[in-house]
Amino acid sequence: MQSGLPENMLSLTNVSAVYMGSILALRNVSLSVPRGSMIALLGPNGSGKTTTLKTISNLLSLDRGRVTKGSIVYEGKPIHGASPAQLVQNGIVQVLEGRRCFLGLTVDENLAVAANNTRNTDHRIVSGAEEIYAFFPSLARQRRKKVEMLSGGEQQMVAIGRALLAQPKLLLLDEPSMGLAPKLVSQIFETIRNLNRTLGLTILVAEQNASVALKHSDYGYILNNGSVTGGGEVAELLESEEVKYSYLGQPPDKAQRQGNDLSATNWMT
């Protein structure tokens, strides 16, 4: 670990966020992302996973949302109110939910958009598009094709490759599994974990598929109705009844069924 930098690359303290000035989407969310780790953010639809990521990357501002209280500290400095483009230059890059590739542009052009707009030179993690093609050989064969011609999995690769070319220190991934076949999902997660290990990239991934996400992460947080309701080492989480019941599809003990955990998760039923 480099000296002089805090151990936590990112920490959120009591962050609340609203949409349209009034719709509360996050309530007192606190979480920390240690340098070099891969963190999973679990939770059902509407629990605030996407909002949490967009709060960090401040893409929230494009959705008419804003942070109402709390602090977000990145690399020891508060980043509240910085423009999304500025945050990308500082190394916070998000892969949006649903991939969101530039469908009418070719694979090459998709990657070039990111490469062209990244000015920082101090933390380059990939040298250029060729390195991305080395990661994802199937993209290399189709580099002059329009992205709309590519399959869902390949589009996800383009989205991740594009994000890497923005030279992130902290990569935010929103539901990389969305709409992909189970086999592809684990492949994508293996790739992501691989990026985390080989490039030393810190990753925060929001995911509904808890079993895959936990399998490949160091640490997990659980979001419910806009608040963090649980968190811990992956091994602990895999053993916790709440996660087992709500996310892994395992029936809880009878005793647990009457417990408090269930009331917090009755959105599932």
Binding site: S83, A85, V88, Q89, F102, L105, E109, N117, T118, R162
Partner: peptide, 24 residues
């Protein structure tokens, strides 16, 4: 041109463009 490419990216999906560092 590079700027032209950024413009086309914004036209395709402005939020995605911002997410990789294009300044809207």
């Amino acid at each position: 041109t590079k700027v032209g490419l950024s413009l086309r990216a914004v036209a395709e999906d402005h939020q995605a463009a911002v997410s990789v560092g294009v300044s809207l």
